[in-house]
């Protein structure tokens, strides 16, 4: 029986690892575009996540007061596209009003977006108050799938599916549509794309909006697992940067692998030791790895003169 119990733990840890990875990936996906592809040190990405979470909260409030009771359970499905649109709009405004003046000035953009992050946090605090708010999980996400003795919570399965959809959507957009291809072209070689008639300014704004919108979707998912408050973004911004840098800047595949690696390592190390040790080990491994491969897991070769 001892062997069976050990198998169970391994299986549930593997699931925990993958589930944590999927969540990390969702957080990092937007940043992989704004920071990875566009090279903007976007410190406000965490606050896009925060806004997404508050949009979910607001949708819940609206549904509970204006919609029939039986519709309430579906508020969460509506909140995802709403969060995407709201944060994408904020991202677009941000790009137009601030970021576009700061391209190629990474330090300035870092300071400026950090300032934006503080402003957004204070706005959230003014509107929703400083304490955390509670988001009620829709009942269809309560409980979990029981396989042998391992419980797979529906929420975590849902996040896995959500990440899958985001990733597929992003892939199709970037490599199969004209607009997406323009975006890829601009990020790979701005001057060349510009020479070929691509309106790079417009593409930049669109890309930044897309990245921010994905942050908003991550915020929706966050309400299922974690706290919702004005400063939640700061909990995740470091993890997100870590994943994008480890994966290799400018590369979505790298971000995917980076998230899976970090998620699995931290859950398994934590199981063998403690959460604090896991954090230390993950950071140490990343530092060592970047010594060996400074450009991350997958480095993009480009002919542009950076």
């Amino acid at each position: 029986m001892k062997g069976g119990a050990a198998m169970e733990i391994w299986a549930s840890q593997l699931f925990n690892g993958l589930s944590y990875s999927s969540f990390l990936l969702l957080i990092a996906l937007g940043l992989a575009i704004t920071f990875g592809l566009m090279k903007v040190m976007n410190m406000a990405h965490g606050d896009m996540i925060m806004i997404g979470a508050y949009v979910t909260y607001s949708t819940q409030l609206i549904f509970s007061s204006f919609m029939p009771q039986n519709m309430f359970d579906y508020y969460f499905l509506f909140s995802i596209p709403i969060a995407f649109v709201v944060t994408a709009c904020i991202g677009w405004i941000l790009e137009k009003s601030l970021i576009q003046f700061l391209y190629n000035r990474p330090l300035d953009s870092m300071l400026a977006t950090w300032g934006v992050s503080l402003i957004l946090q204070q706005i959230a605090r003014t509107i929703f108050g400083a304490p955390n708010v509670a988001v009620k999980t829709p009942s269809w996400l309560d409980g979990g799938l029981q396989i042998a003795a391992v419980t797979l919570p529906y929420k975590r399965l849902f996040i896995l599916v959500l990440v899958g959809l985001c990733l597929t959507g992003l892939y199709v957009y970037l490599y199969r549509t004209a607009a997406g291809r323009r975006m890829t072209a601009v990020t790979l070689n701005r001057q060349m794309a510009s020479c070929l008639g691509v309106n790079t300014r417009k593409v930049d704004a669109g890309a930044f909006a897309l990245g921010s919108g994905l942050g908003g979707v991550a915020g929706c998912a966050l309400t299922l697992l974690g706290p919702v408050g004005p400063t939640v973004g700061t909990n995740y911004i470091i993890d997100a940067f870590m994943i994008v840098i480890l994966g290799g800047i400018g590369n979505l595949k790298g971000t995917l692998i980076g998230a899976v690696v970090i998620g699995l390592i931290s859950t398994f190390v934590e199981f063998g030791s403690s959460a604090t040790i896991a954090k230390v080990v993950v950071f140490a491994l990343i530092i060592l790895f970047l010594q060996w491969k400074p450009f991350g897991l997958i480095s993009t070769r480009s002919r542009a003169l950076d």
Partner: peptide, 13 residues
């Protein structure tokens, strides 16, 4: 068990 302040993934714990 101890987790860092602000820790948010408790699946392993």
């Amino acid at each position: 068990e101890y987790t860092p302040l602000g820790h948010t993934d408790y699946s392993t714990l």
